[in-house]
Nucleic acid binder design. Structure first.
Lengths: 113, 113
DNA sequence: GTGATAGTTAGAGGAATGGCTAAGTATGAT
DNA sequence: ATCATACTTAGCCATTCCTCTAACTATCAC
């Protein structure tokens, strides 16, 4: 089992860091240069660059250099594999929740007698 | 910025490992004991236990001991914070995609003249 | 109580992560 | 040509992660 899906792992890992999520939230308002993304984080540039490369390797952002400025932007479709997986799970999990409800309900009815 | 939301970080981190995702997928088919979860992974028990505790600390599963067997089960609502965040982002990202489309369309119309 | 079963705890080791400084390169402005 | 800006690269350090072995505890079955 557990044939590993590098895509999902990279994606979930990329989102597991609050700094990176904050960067994505900033980028949701439009493309931005590296320095601009660094600003609110309080982190040094090399550190920020590492975070950006994690995001880029996960396919969540693209970046291109224009003159001496590197501009970063979201890759909108990038969330799809994750939302698909979560959606699939949610469906199954809720089915289980229903069965649990049934079970509890049945238990309580037993008690009432 | 980046006021950190430990919840989301724990959740995304928990899902970033293929072994843990496989365990969740197994649990989606119903509760299971530790040894049963360990089986398909090929990992040693202490390793499996560590994965389970990551899942449990993220709030994705619960476990309870009955006799000498520990039974693990999903916590169905646990995915909600993640899907909420992703849904919020998706909305913003797609808005950006629309604007990009607009932009490209406009560019192409300019070219046509 | 003996032995097998199902976890559990403690600890070690190597790789990956997240942060830094220091020193580089490339480009725009004067 | 000089200087400031905007990254970029290289390397260090502490911590966390994933996995293991070895030894332990707690049931259950005889």
């Amino acid at each position: 089992m557990a044939k590993y899906d590098p895509d999902l792992s990279l994606l979930f890992h990329a989102l597991s860091d609050p700094t990176r999520r904050a960067m994505l939230e900033r980028l949701a308002r439009g493309p931005a240069a590296v320095t601009e993304l660094a600003g609110p984080t309080g982190l040094r540039l090399p550190t920020v660059l590492r975070h950006l490369s994690v995001l880029e390797e996960a396919g969540l952002i693209t970046s291109a250099k224009d003159g001496r400025v590197r501009s970063c932007a979201l890759v909108p479709q990038a969330l799809v594999p994750m939302t698909d997986w979560l959606e699939g799970q949610r469906a199954l999990w809720e089915a289980r929740l229903d069965r649990l409800d049934d079970y509890v309900t049945r238990l309580m009815k037993e008690r009432e007698r």
